[in-house]
Simulated scan of single mutants.
Amino acid sequence: MRKSTRLVAAGLAALALAGAAPATGASAAGHPVDRITTGGQSKVATASDPHLVHFQHLSIDQGLSPDRARLVVRRIRELYTFWDTGDVRYLHRADSPAFVDRTLPTGRPQGLRGIEQASRTFRAAVPDLRCTVADVLIAGDRVSVRQVYSGHFTGTYNGARGHGQGVRFNAFDIQQVGARQIVGDWHLEDNMTFSKQIGALS
């Protein structure tokens, strides 16, 4: 099978799973399918699981098989549905029990326990926190993800109480996907913007 044909198959497999429309110029007639666009945030996904988030843009490695594309897309959607909802069931579907945080912040427990703690901390500050998955790039066993978090600071953070300030900031992850689940990541959050928005920094 030629590379362009494999890419079409992989892209269409992920397309069916993501419930998205192919980008301009992409079709099953042999044009590369390397980007998938939904144009919305956290919309209804598929009939089988209407709760998974969508991606706004998705690019898929040419060498990925349809089965592999389907698995990786599913795991990434599950992970960021966890960040969008705080529901730990999605985290445990997405991430391996042996998951390793390779940019572990000081004081955060390693593994899934640390991820759960981070989610609780943010949701204590921003109870209506939402995660929009803006850009996803899948290449080999690595997935680059840009997320946009938004909500209102109505809770507490580091002893400070919110007054409804709006928050909106970016985060960037590289997820490593193993045979069945995500096994590790590298991540960077725009904590300075978040801190300024809640009044912790001038």
Rank of each mutant, 00 (worst) to 15 (best):
4 S>M: 09
4 S>G: 02
7 L>H: 02
7 L>S: 01
9 A>F: 11
11 G>Q: 12
12 L>C: 10
16 A>C: 10
17 L>F: 02
19 G>P: 14
20 A>R: 09
30 G>Q: 13
31 H>S: 15
33 V>P: 08
42 S>T: 12
42 S>V: 12
48 S>M: 09
48 S>N: 08
51 H>W: 06
51 H>V: 07
51 H>L: 10
52 L>G: 08
58 L>T: 09
58 L>R: 06
65 S>T: 10
70 R>A: 12
72 V>P: 00
77 R>V: 03
78 E>V: 05
78 E>I: 06
78 E>M: 04
79 L>Y: 09
83 W>H: 02
84 D>N: 15
85 T>S: 15
87 D>N: 14
90 Y>Q: 11
92 H>V: 01
95 D>R: 10
99 F>C: 00
110 Q>P: 09
110 Q>V: 04
112 L>Q: 07
113 R>L: 12
113 R>I: 10
114 G>K: 00
119 S>P: 06
128 D>L: 11
128 D>K: 12
129 L>G: 14
135 D>L: 13
137 L>I: 14
137 L>N: 12
140 G>H: 09
140 G>Y: 07
141 D>V: 10
143 V>R: 00
156 T>Y: 01
157 Y>W: 10
158 N>L: 05
158 N>Y: 03
159 G>F: 02
162 G>Y: 08
169 F>K: 06
169 F>H: 07
170 N>G: 11
171 A>E: 06
174 I>Q: 12
177 V>N: 01
179 A>V: 14
187 H>K: 12
188 L>N: 13
194 F>N: 00
200 A>R: 12
201 L>Y: 03
202 S>M: 01
202 S>R: 04
